[in-house]
Write a protein that binds this DNA or RNA. Structure first.
Length: 250
DNA sequence: AAGTGCCCCAACCGCGTCCGT
DNA sequence: CACGGACGCGGTTGGGGCACT
C-alpha cells in the first residue's frame, strides 16, 4: 500500500528544537497528555511533524528521563538484554528506567560495541571474536543465523522455559539462561510521567509485556521498598494487563 | 591560536505493524 | 477481508563540541 507523508513537509520546521518549541510541546502534553501525535503539532501551535514531536518528547522532554552517564550496572544489563533481544532497543529501554531506546542505541554504538570488541567479544553475536571469525568463514554463518541476532529467545519462542535453544540444537554456545532478574538502582527522580494520559497500548506492550513477565522484570524494587511498575509507567500498558506486579492498573 | 579529525548525540527517514472502518 | 491512517521502531545522518597537532 502507498504511504502518505506523515505531515505536510512544506510547512514544518526541521532540525534542532528551540527552547520555545520545547516549552510549547511540554505545556501542551502536560495539559492534554500524549496521544494523537499527528494532530498535536497543530493543536500545540508547533510547525513540526507529529513524528518529530513524539521523538522530542520521548527522547528529551519526558519528565522521568534519567540524564547522565550510564552506570556499570546499566552497561551490564544492556549487554545481557542485547544478547537476548538483539537490536530491540525499545524493549531494552523498557527494562531500563529513565532511559530511551535512542539513548541506549547511541550508547551501544558508541561505547558498548567498543567495550565488547576490546574484550574480544563480537557485539553482534556476543560470542568470542575467534569463534565468530571461524563461523564467518563457514557457510550459512550469517549474523541473522546466530541466536542472539535472530532473537530466537524472543518472548514468543522462549516463553518462561527458555527452551528454544534446546530445540534448535546443542551446538550453539549461546543459551537463554541468563538471569534477568536484574535491578537498576533508583533513579534520582521517581518517574512522574502522567501515565493516565498515555495513549492506548498497542502492539509493543504485548510483546514487551510477555517478555517482561518472562524475565520477571515487570516491576522494580527500589530502596524505599516501593515498586515501580514498568509495565505501566514505561511501557504504556493498559490496566496492568500482563503485569505481574500486582498494581492492577489505574 | 588556527586547523583538522574524531566522537557523540539529537533528529530524521523509511518501513513494518496495528487498528479502525 | 481489504484498505488506509497512524504509530512506533530501528537504522542512519548531520552538526556541534572536543581533543589533538
Amino acid at each position: 500500500m502507498g504511504r502518505s507523508p506523515c505531515c505536510e513537509k512544506a510547512h514544518t520546521n526541521k532540525g534542532a528544537w528551540t527552547k520555545e518549541e520545547d516549552q510549547r510541546l511540554v505545556a501542551y502534553i502536560k495539559a492534554h497528555g500524549e496521544g494523537c501525535w499527528r494532530s498535536l503539532p497543530k493543536a500545540a501551535g508547533l510547525l513540526r511533524c507529529g513524528k518529530s514531536c513524539r521523538l522530542r518528547w520521548i527522547n528529551y522532554l519526558r519528565p522521568d528521563l534519567k540524564r547522565g552517564n550510564f552506570t556499570e550496572e546499566e552497561d551490564d544489563l544492556i549487554i545481557k538484554l542485547h544478547q537476548i533481544l538483539g537490536n530491540k532497543w525499545s524493549q531494552i529501554a523498557g527494562r531500563l528506567p529513565g532511559r530511551t531506546d535512542n539513548e541506549i542505541k547511541n550508547y551501544w554504538n558508541t561505547h558498548i560495541k567498543r567495550k565488547l570488541l576490546a574484550r574480544g567479544i563480537d557485539p553482534k553475536t556476543h560470542r568470542p571474536l575467534s569463534v565468530t571469525a571461524a563461523a564467518a568463514a563457514a557457510p550459512s554463518s550469517r549474523p541473522e543465523d546466530q541466536p542472539a541476532a535472530r532473537s530466537s529467545c524472543s518472548p514468543e519462542t522462549s516463553g518462561a522455559s527458555n527452551s528454544s535453544d534446546e530445540e534448535s540444537g546443542a551446538s550453539v554456545p549461546f543459551r537463554c539462561s541468563i538471569d534477568l532478574n536484574l535491578c537498576i538502582s533508583q533513579p534520582s527522580q521517581q518517574p512522574s510521567l502522567p501515565s493516565t494520559s498515555s495513549p492506548p497500548a498497542r502492539k509493543q506492550e504485548t510483546e514487551a509485556t510477555s517478555s517482561a513477565t518472562a524475565v520477571d522484570a515487570s516491576s522494580r524494587s527500589y530502596s524505599d521498598g516501593k515498586k515501580i511498575c514498568l509495565c505501566l509507567n514505561r511501557l504504556g500498558l493498559q490496566g496492568g494487563e500482563g503485569c505481574t506486579c500486582g498494581h492492577g492498573g489505574q
